[in-house]
């Protein structure tokens, strides 16, 4: 960049209001950088794995470990054109959804219960800590034995990952309910049950939503890892199959597809979040009349 050596203060001054704070380049420039980095990565990858650009012996060896970008793209396109990927994707997304839903509901329930019952919380505390500290991915083989190689064992793994994120958020959320709001609701005549419904639950839910990105991501991780460790369907299974025959192009194609869908999920979550948390104050909000 030509102005790279300009003093920071001067660069800051030139920043327009539409940019994120502290970013010294424009929107178009930012997009250009994003694309350029991607292009460089693909370019280097392509160059290193193409005989003729690099010595053929090296190129083939590198391609064995890293695959070839054009082959990867071909596999991805082939999957979607032939439709071969859809049942696997559907399974993986279904597992993600189930793991997320079940884990969230369980986390919400247990979180509310323990936060509102100090005795139960004190009794459960060491076990919660231990289970949270445990690397839970290691439970996958046990779940495979319990629930078989189908959808259930992946959901179970995802649930153990999602549960703790939601649980800790809800627990915190209930503990941090404003005492004034609580006292006010009591003065307005709320019974214990109504306090739960009208104060604790909405407050806790808002914390669940704030952890939505992490928990959806974790549900996805649970599904894919579960599939990878033993299954008959799913994107993780495709990767496992390809790895078995050293088809590195397909492995990487699987990773690319998973990444794209993780991004899509994240996008959907952002949209849902914006709709459900309308009551949340945002800084510098303007009226839309």
């Amino acid at each position: 960049m030509s102005n790279g050596s300009a003093p920071l203060a001067a660069t800051r001054k030139a920043v327009s209001r539409s940019r994120p704070k502290g970013v010294a380049i424009g929107r178009m420039q930012l997009a250009a950088w994003h694309i350029a980095i991607l292009a460089v990565v693909f370019g280097v990858w392509y160059a290193l794995t193409t005989p003729g650009i690099v010595d053929a012996a090296y190129a083939n060896r590198i391609a064995f470990f890293f695959g070839r970008p054009l082959q990867v793209v071909k596999v991805v396109i082939d999957w979607f054109v032939s439709g071969k990927i859809y049942p696997h994707l559907a399974i993986t997304l279904w597992e993600t959804l189930l793991a997320f839903a079940i884990g969230s509901v369980m986390g919400l329930g247990v979180g509310l219960w323990l936060a509102l019952s100090p005795t139960a919380s004190a009794i459960a505390e060491p076990y919660i800590t231990a289970m949270n500290a445990m690397p839970r991915v290691i439970l996958a083989p046990i779940f495979a034995v319990w629930f078989g190689l189908g959808v259930l064992s992946k959901v179970a793994l995802g649930v153990t990952l999602v549960f703790f994120i939601v649980f800790f958020n809800v627990y915190q959320g209930v503990k941090e309910v404003s005492p004034v709001v609580l006292a006010n609701a009591r003065m307005l005549g709320a019974s214990r049950q109504q306090l739960l419904r009208s104060i604790y639950l909405p407050s806790a839910t808002s914390w669940v939503f704030s952890s939505l990105h992490t928990s959806v991501g974790m549900a996805f991780v649970g599904a894919v890892v579960g599939e990878y460790l033993g299954s008959a369907k799913g994107v993780g299974y495709l990767i496992l199959q390809a790895e078995g025959v050293f088809d590195i192009n397909t492995v990487i194609a699987g990773i690319v597809v998973l990444t794209i869908f993780a991004l899509l999920l994240d996008f959907v979550v952002t949209k849902i979040e914006a709709r459900l948390l309308v009551w949340r104050p945002r800084t510098a909000q303007t009226e839309s009349l």
Partner: peptide, 15 residues
């Protein structure tokens, strides 16, 4: 009794 608090006591998630 009705109680009006010094601090904001409205439920932020309700209109």
């Amino acid at each position: 009794a009705g109680y009006m608090f010094q601090a904001d006591a409205l439920m932020p998630w309700r209109s």
